[in-house]
Computed example of a mutant assay.
Amino acid sequence: MQGKKFAAAATAALATCAVAHADELENNTVRTGYAKVRFHLQSGDLSGPPGTTPPGLRIDARDLDIFAISYERRLSDHWALQLQAGIPPTLTAVGAGAAAPVGTVAKARIWFPTAMVRYTIPGFSVVHPYVATGVTYTFFTGQEISPAYNAALQGTGSDIKLHSSWGAYARVGVEYPLDRQWRLNLEYSSFRLKTSAAVDTRTPGFGTITRHVDLKDAPGILGATIGYRF
């Protein structure tokens, strides 16, 4: 009798552990996919020492295609913590305003790793709509000025420094479970980008001339990803 009770207790304990383990297996999700970033860059005028910079020179940015990667940790039935990154795309800055004829003026790798808290809206059986908010840190690597910029400002070469910044990040989306582990996800996001650039141009007869431009934006990001829960 004691052996039967022990066996029953052990079976119940193992079943409980299995359920707990199965629940634990569904607390993590990894997503990969594609995202399109659309810029609406607001640029100040490029400024420098008096008499060195024509008025009305501004900057715009071309839209980006991104391979997105994110990790999510479920905190409860409706709340989750999400971390996202991706392969940093090359941001291409082009002339705007009086600088539009110049074309490409600079290129850089743009990084914006993001941490968010996500809330899944209850009451839906087929799809899972959600909202998320968090913070992103934008920084740049591989920054370089184009020959067209140097030619337009009569320089022999230039160095550029784009400053990093923190910004708010917001998202709305919907998730569709394909089965217990696989999910299809569609989302729209936006984040606050505010930075400035300093460009040092080596100019014959004048030495190095430093120019600045202020930039801000709230890029829109449309993404489609596939997720795996484990």
Rank of each mutant, 00 (worst) to 15 (best):
S125Q: 10
H128R: 07
H128S: 07
H128K: 07
Y130H: 09
A132Q: 01
T133R: 00
T133G: 07
G134R: 02
Y137N: 06
T138R: 03
T138H: 04
F139E: 01
F139M: 04
F139D: 02
F139W: 06
F140Q: 06
F140D: 08
F140S: 07
G142K: 02
G142T: 08
Q143V: 15
Q143T: 15
E144A: 09
S146D: 11
Y149E: 05
N150I: 09
A151E: 10
A151M: 08
A151W: 02
A152K: 08
A152N: 12
A152S: 14
A152G: 09
L153K: 03
L153V: 15
L153T: 14
Q154P: 00
Q154W: 11
Q154L: 14
Q154D: 13
Q154C: 05
G155M: 09
G155E: 11
T156W: 01
T156D: 11
G157N: 11
S158G: 02
S158P: 03
S158A: 11
S158H: 03
S158R: 02
I160G: 06
I160C: 00
K161F: 11
K161G: 12
L162D: 08
L162I: 15
L162W: 10
H163Y: 12
H163M: 09
S164G: 06
S165H: 11
S165L: 04
S165R: 07
W166M: 13
W166Y: 15
G167Y: 04
G167K: 02
A168F: 12
A168W: 12
Y169V: 13
A170K: 00
A170Q: 03
R171G: 08
R171M: 14
V172D: 01
V172W: 00
G173P: 10
V174R: 05
V174Y: 04
E175D: 14
P177L: 07
L178S: 11
D179N: 15
D179F: 03
D179G: 03
R180H: 12
R180I: 12
W182Y: 06
W182D: 03
W182T: 07
L184R: 09
E187L: 06
E187S: 12
Y188K: 00
S189F: 07
